[in-house]
């Protein structure tokens, strides 16, 4: 498996770029695929951080209090440009959508009368599922080729997705085991080379 932890500090984005990217992600995310969208933008297209770094940030964003789609930009923003980077990234994902949600509230009574509004939003939300699912499949594929990561992935998916256990409890049960197994691998790799 290629080592992806060593990925570039190649192009560190400035504050303006961070704000723009997260504002764009914020105002174009319909129907809940926002973290999949962030992964596409920050990992696949801009290569700001490796997939493992992103996924670790995502898991921590979900485990910590707060809304994960706000926590994750803070995490990434800090990695890219320190505290100012964290602040502008959070503002980017919060403030522009604030304007939109207020505009929608102001026109809701009007728009609600049209069947087309509901249909268009349903269709947009359905298409947005593809973002989340494709990211899940892509990162899942990387992990099913090794035994313990595949087990951890399957256990998490089963607990949260199929059995509907609370996410935090599943994380508390599985993450320590997964990290311990990874630590054993890291130690072994360092001892060998």
């Amino acid at each position: 498996m290629p080592d992806q932890t060593a990925t570039s500090a190649s192009a560190r984005p400035g504050l303006t770029t961070l704000f723009h990217v997260f504002a764009k992600l914020g105002i174009t995310s319909f129907g809940g695929g926002l973290s999949g969208w962030m992964m596409r933008e920050c990992v696949q297209q801009r290569r700001w951080l490796s997939e493992d770094e992103f996924l670790a940030g995502l898991a921590m964003s979900q485990a910590l209090p707060g809304v994960n789609v706000v926590n994750l930009p803070i995490w990434i923003g800090y990695r890219m440009a320190g505290s100012p980077g964290a602040v502008v990234s959070a503002l980017g994902v919060i403030v522009p959508p604030m304007g939109i949600v207020m505009a929608m509230a102001a026109t809701y009574g009007f728009l609600q009368r049209f069947e087309a509004t509901h249909l268009a939003l349903q269709g947009a939300a359905a298409a947005a599922i593809g973002l989340s699912l494709s990211m899940g499949l892509r990162s899942g594929y990387r992990h099913i080729r090794k035994l313990w990561p595949a087990c951890m992935l399957a256990a998490t998916f089963t607990g949260v997705g199929l059995l509907h256990f609370p996410m935090i409890e599943v994380l508390i049960a599985i993450a320590p085991i997964s990290i311990a197994l990874a630590y054993r691998d890291v130690r072994a790799a360092r001892a060998n080379g």
Partner: peptide, 16 residues
């Protein structure tokens, strides 16, 4: 180790 350990867990969360 934390990053490598959390990655498959996060992938499971995205799929869920």
């Amino acid at each position: 180790a934390v990053e490598k350990g959390l990655a498959p867990v996060a992938a499971g969360l995205i799929l869920a």
